[in-house]
């Protein structure tokens, strides 16, 4: 197995954290991984990308990701951007934070592969109380791809967030992850 994930969002939405979260969970399962942001300056609100590579064997490659297997879009306002489907073949998967159906996303993106939607902003508002969609999108990705186990993602959230935002906020993020896992639509 060698899977490349590309994350799209805006600066400040936790895009890099999402890529790191998936990487950490993969490590806990004994897999090899690499996670990195788009190289360069990051500005709040500007479109940004991050990447995660997961493999059964050691990862040597250190170039950018050009042909991702999975694309995750954290911000619905980016779906019209052609960069979303760049390099993504029809064999690939597109996971979008979107309140509507996968067919609606297909109309916007013209992507012909498999599309999944999750109303991550609403779930985040109801659990975390802020429109931070990153942990929800990881939940949806875990369900759709099975790259890591759900509990491994939960452990990783606890490990990464608890010392920074406390137990209450961490629990809310785990709840968001689980809800997105269960509510993702295909």
């Amino acid at each position: 197995m060698f899977v490349e994930v590309r994350w799209h969002g805006r600066g400040g939405q936790g895009v890099v954290t999402a890529s790191e979260l998936l990487a950490g969970a993969a490590l806990a399962e004994g897999k090899y991984l690499q996670a990195f942001p788009e190289f360069g300056p990051e500005r709040m609100g500007a479109p940004i990308k991050a990447f995660t590579r997961i493999s059964d064997g050691p990862i040597e490659i250190h170039s950018h990701v050009y042909t991702p297997d999975v694309v995750v879009v954290l911000d619905p306002s980016l779906l019209e951007n052609p960069a979303i489907t760049e390099g993504l073949s029809d064999e690939g998967k597109l996971i979008a934070n979107f309140s509507g159906t996968p067919d609606e996303v297909r109309k916007i993106t013209k992507f012909m592969g498999r599309i999944y939607t999750v109303d991550a902003t609403r779930i985040a508002m109801e659990t975390i109380g802020r429109p931070i969609a990153n942990t929800c999108c990881v939940g949806a990705l875990v369900k759709v791809t099975g790259l890591v186990a759900l509990e491994q993602a939960e452990n990783q959230i606890r490990q990464m967030l608890e010392s920074k935002i406390g137990k209450k906020g961490t629990d809310a993020n785990i709840e968001a992850l689980r809800r997105a896992y269960n509510e993702v639509r295909s």
């Binding site: 991984l33 690499q34 990195f36």
Partner: peptide
């Protein structure tokens, strides 16, 4: 170490 390719890339 290379800028970004190592400096900002997460690895185990």
């Amino acid at each position: 170490l290379d800028a970004f390719i190592l400096s900002h890339t997460y690895e185990p």
